[in-house]
Structures are given as C-alpha cells and as structure tokens.
Design a protein around this nucleic acid. Structure first.
Lengths: 212, 212
DNA sequence: GTAAAAGTGCACTCGTCAGTGTACTTTTGG
DNA sequence: CCAAAAGTACACTGACGAGTGCACTTTTAC
C-alpha cells in the first residue's frame, strides 16, 4: 500500500527539522518586536518556540544569525505584499482615488499587531551596530511604486514629472502617517485607536490635490 | 577687595556639581543615540563624561533615571526650537513659500548629528518597556504648528478647513521625509548625503499645491 | 587653616545571559 | 528491529555589567 501523504502522520526528518526552524524564527520575530533585540534572551526564544535551547543552537550558530534571518524573512514577505498590492489594486482603468485607497489599506491594514512594514522598520531601527542585510532594502518598495506611478503619469491619470518624488510624497501622506498613528497608539496606551480609514482617505485626498 | 566674578576661577560648589551633572547627561545622550540604551554601559557614560562611576551614582540613582532625564532634556530643547522657529519664521506677511521653507530648514538643518527631533524620535523608539515621561509629548509640536496654520487659514494664505490635518501633512511632506533621508544615509554609509534643500523645496511645493 | 562637601579609585557582589558539553530519549527510515 | 538523525534536560563556564562600600584626595567656603 503506497503512502502518498505520509507527512500527515510523520513529517519526515527533513520537514520536521524545518518546522522547528521556522518555529524558532517565528518566536524570535515576536520577541524581537515586542522586547527588542537586547532584551530578548535566547532561552526565551527557545521556550516560546517549544524547543530546547540546544536544538536552537543546532539550527543557528548565533543569536545574531537568528536576527538576520528574521530580518530577511520579514523583508521578503514585505516585498511580496507590496508587489501584490501594486499589481492587484493599482490597476489602470479603475477610479484613481478608489485604487489608491484600496492599495494603501492593503498595506497598512494588517497592522493589527503584525504589519510587515511596521515590523521591518522597527527591527531595522533597533539594531544599529549589527551587520545589516545586503542593502538598498528600503529602496525597493519605493522603486516598485515609482514604476507604477510612471505609468499613471503617462496615461494622464496624475501629473508627476518626477514619479519617484510622487511615490515618496504619496507614501509620506498615507502609509507613513497611518503607521505613525499606530505606533503612537501602541506607545501611549489608553488613547482611542487611530481611525485608519480617515487618515488614509485624507492622505489620498491631499495627494490627489497636489498631483492631479 | 570684592570678588565680583569668582566663578571664572572657582565655579563654586553648586556650579561645579551642576557642571558634572550635565556632563554626565551629555555623555549619556551621545551614547544612547549612537549605541542604544542597552548597549550603553554606565561605565562608558562615566568615562566619556570624565567622571568617576561613583560620582555618577551620587548624582543619579539609576541608569534608567539617566535615560529619563536625557529624554526630558531633549524634549524641552526640541519644544523651544520649534516654538522659536514658528514665531520667528512663520510670520504673517512674509511670502508663504519662503516662510515655510525657512521654517523647515531651521528644524531640520542642525541634523548634522544632533538634530533634536531626530534624537528624540530615536530615543523614544528604543526603550519600549521603560517608564515613559508624562505623555502627549509627540502631540505638542503638532499642536503649536496647528495653531499657526489656523491663523494662516483665517487670513486666506492657505485653504485648510482642518488645520491640524494640514499641519500633519506638511510635516509628513517636509520634516519627516528629510529626517528619513538623513537616517537612511546614516544607516547605509557610502551613499551620497541627501540633498535636504531639494527635499524640502519639493515638499513645500507639494504642500502648497494641495493646500492653496 | 580647617572642616565639610564633592569627587576619586578600586575592589567586590550579584545577577543575567550567550553559548557548550554530555548523557539521555524520541523519531524516523529501511 | 535497529541504527542514525533529531531532539531534550540540565548543569556548567565565562563574560559582562549594574550598583555598592570604603578609604582616600581634592576643592571650596569662611
């Protein structure tokens, strides 16, 4: 009798091992974000991942390596989130205001505690003296948006002689402000949660006034 | 013979002591910014301040207390910087574009390594679990700007039915973007330094298009 | 000149945390 | 069933850093 889907019961050595590995990275991500790099102990990561400390060190040589891995993982998902949002929401032919609003929401919304973008900024802003991943990271999302803005400018939807600048201004008016509001809320508890809808709508509005 | 200006030679007990105190805070500020809170050792602060560790602990009970003191000092100078910039640059009667540009420069420019605003954001973003100073800090500068924008709206210089929103958007388009550029430059060395003039001019430009 | 205030040097305690060594158990593949 | 891979429990080392105790020197005030 052939075992077609054996992993359901027994994951297999490889899969099992890989599972622990990502569990460790997940736990580390959580703790790095809530506690910061320095305050996160390796023991705590192991405990949260439900893995022995020794296993952790069998997978990763270093605390620092774990940090870098988390960073690059987050970066990847961030990039694909943005890329998908651009492709699927910022389509030509759609009403511009609607498209921009939907796009921004898609990036900001999941920020109920796990926004990739937010996460990424935080992680980056923490570790100052640790070797950073390759580079030009912060640049990529902007570049992607710039490209789409170039197309929008070409077909006359917006007036943007310098599409990169337009992309920067758009981000500043919408995504950045929304994130700032979320951060402030987190830091200063017992204030009412920010009205993301309003922030985004206002930002899109101002952008359209400036770039149309 | 009366000693009119005795402090020149002998500072006096009080002044001498106060001098050490601020030396300590200065050193701490430098290190907290460059190294982060956790990575900054009390010994390093004492060494940089040219003060014995014991003296440091005679002035401040705690490492944490030092952090809070630094924070509130930075906050105060930040507030007065902004307040002065508003009063002296954002005067009515002046050409609006010129006024806004000068105002922004005044806040951003000294960022050659000691921008108060930047400093403050950084310090705040670091310590997540440490007791924070009173509150509504981030709110104050905005409030001051909002007030002036209300006046500008009243005399027809700008069209801003919601002055606070205008202030937020202005900050996002100018100050925030400039700071972001400075931060990126610092993190990612060997890139050319950002052209703050251009960033600010473009930001003011977009703002005027949206709010005029 | 002198006493007290301010500062110094240094050794020491105590806790924490990264990373290791090892003997042991569990899981998996064939 | 068995051998090897993967994981565990736990004790341990070594470093480092916050904060203290104390005997001592310097500075200031009068």
């Amino acid at each position: 009798m052939p075992r077609i889907n054996a992993e359901v019961q027994t994951p297999g050595r490889r899969l099992r091992s890989e599972g622990k590995k990502t569990a460790i990275l997940d736990a580390a991500e959580t703790l790095f974000i809530t506690e910061g790099y320095e305050r996160t102990t390796v023991d705590a990561v192991a405990a949260l991942a439900q893995v022995s400390k020794r296993t952790l060190y069998n997978h990763f040589s270093d605390k620092e390596i774990i940090f870098l891995r988390v960073l690059s993982r987050v970066n990847e998902t961030l990039l694909s989130t943005i890329s998908a949002a651009i492709d699927e929401e910022l389509t030509t032919g759609r009403d511009l205001r609607e498209a921009l609003t939907a796009f921004t929401h898609r990036i900001v919304d999941r920020a109920f505690g796990s926004s990739d973008y937010l996460t990424f900024r935080r992680l980056l802003s923490q570790q100052q003296s640790v070797p950073r991943p390759p580079g030009a990271i912060r640049d990529r999302p902007l570049g992607m948006l710039e490209q789409r803005f170039t197309e929008l400018a070409a077909d006359g939807s917006i007036r943007a002689p310098r599409p990169r600048l337009a992309a920067q201004h758009f981000t500043a008016l919408t995504i950045s402000l929304a994130q700032e509001a979320l951060l402030d809320h987190e830091n200063e508890k017992d204030t009412e949660p920010p009205d993301l809808d309003a922030i985004i709508a206002d930002g899109v509005d101002a952008f359209l006034r400036a770039y149309r």
